Computed example of a mutant assay.
Amino acid sequence: MEMNLQVELSKEDLVHYFKVIGEVDAFTAPVLKEKLISVQDTPGLQAEIDLSEVDYIDSTGLGIFIGFYKVLKEKEGYVKMTGVNARLKRLFEITGIDKIIDIEMEEGGNLDATV
């Protein structure tokens, strides 16, 4: 069974909103990477990645998000992940991604007091 990944992009001034739907793994990650790369050279880009419809991200997907973050940081940009469920939040904590990328839990999720 082939998993599909959809990445929808909308723009509002310098803010690019990505809506990711599906599972991010070695097979689907190129779809995500292609969409992110298409905008990553925009100086001062503000990227907001909605993961509310993503239940699974493997190491390939994590690498893509980290790479995107690094490129944007070099260009004075910013990355924020929204709609993160408890499972993904735990993954981001274990890998340390939550220390470099702004993570916003999904509505109804447990928000840390540090938010």
Rank of each mutant, 00 (worst) to 15 (best):
1 M>D: 08
2 E>V: 15
2 E>L: 13
3 M>H: 13
4 N>H: 06
4 N>Y: 06
6 Q>V: 13
6 Q>Y: 11
7 V>R: 08
7 V>K: 08
8 E>Y: 11
8 E>G: 12
9 L>T: 14
11 K>Y: 01
11 K>N: 11
12 E>M: 08
12 E>C: 07
14 L>W: 04
16 H>M: 09
16 H>D: 06
16 H>R: 09
20 V>L: 06
21 I>V: 15
22 G>N: 05
22 G>L: 05
23 E>P: 05
25 D>P: 04
25 D>F: 03
26 A>C: 09
26 A>N: 05
27 F>V: 12
28 T>A: 02
28 T>N: 00
30 P>D: 02
30 P>K: 03
32 L>N: 04
33 K>M: 09
33 K>N: 13
35 K>Q: 15
36 L>P: 01
37 I>A: 04
37 I>C: 01
37 I>T: 13
37 I>G: 02
37 I>S: 04
38 S>H: 09
39 V>D: 00
39 V>G: 01
39 V>Y: 01
39 V>A: 02
41 D>Q: 11
41 D>E: 14
42 T>F: 02
42 T>G: 03
43 P>I: 12
44 G>Q: 07
45 L>N: 01
46 Q>A: 09
47 A>Y: 04
48 E>N: 07
49 I>K: 00
50 D>W: 06
50 D>L: 04
52 S>R: 08
52 S>K: 12
53 E>H: 12
54 V>S: 05
55 D>M: 07
55 D>N: 13
56 Y>W: 03
57 I>S: 01
57 I>D: 03
57 I>N: 00
58 D>M: 05
59 S>H: 08
60 T>V: 14
61 G>T: 06
61 G>D: 01
64 I>H: 05
64 I>Q: 02
65 F>G: 00
66 I>R: 01
67 G>I: 05
68 F>Q: 02
68 F>Y: 14
68 F>R: 01
69 Y>S: 00
70 K>Q: 15
70 K>A: 12
73 K>N: 12
73 K>H: 12
74 E>C: 03
75 K>A: 10
76 E>M: 09
78 Y>T: 00
79 V>Q: 05
81 M>P: 05
82 T>S: 10
82 T>H: 05
85 N>F: 08
85 N>I: 07
86 A>D: 13
86 A>G: 11
86 A>C: 00
87 R>Y: 11
87 R>F: 11
88 L>M: 09
88 L>W: 07
89 K>A: 11
90 R>D: 14
90 R>F: 10
92 F>V: 07
92 F>Y: 10
92 F>H: 08
93 E>G: 03
93 E>A: 10
93 E>Y: 00
95 T>N: 02
96 G>K: 07
96 G>F: 09
97 I>N: 02
98 D>H: 14
99 K>D: 11
100 I>L: 07
101 I>M: 07
103 I>W: 12
103 I>G: 10
104 E>M: 13
104 E>D: 11
106 E>Q: 15
106 E>K: 15
106 E>M: 14
107 E>G: 03
107 E>M: 09
107 E>H: 11
108 G>F: 13
110 N>D: 13
111 L>Y: 14
111 L>F: 14
111 L>R: 15
111 L>G: 14
112 D>L: 15
112 D>S: 15
113 A>N: 13
113 A>P: 06
114 T>D: 15
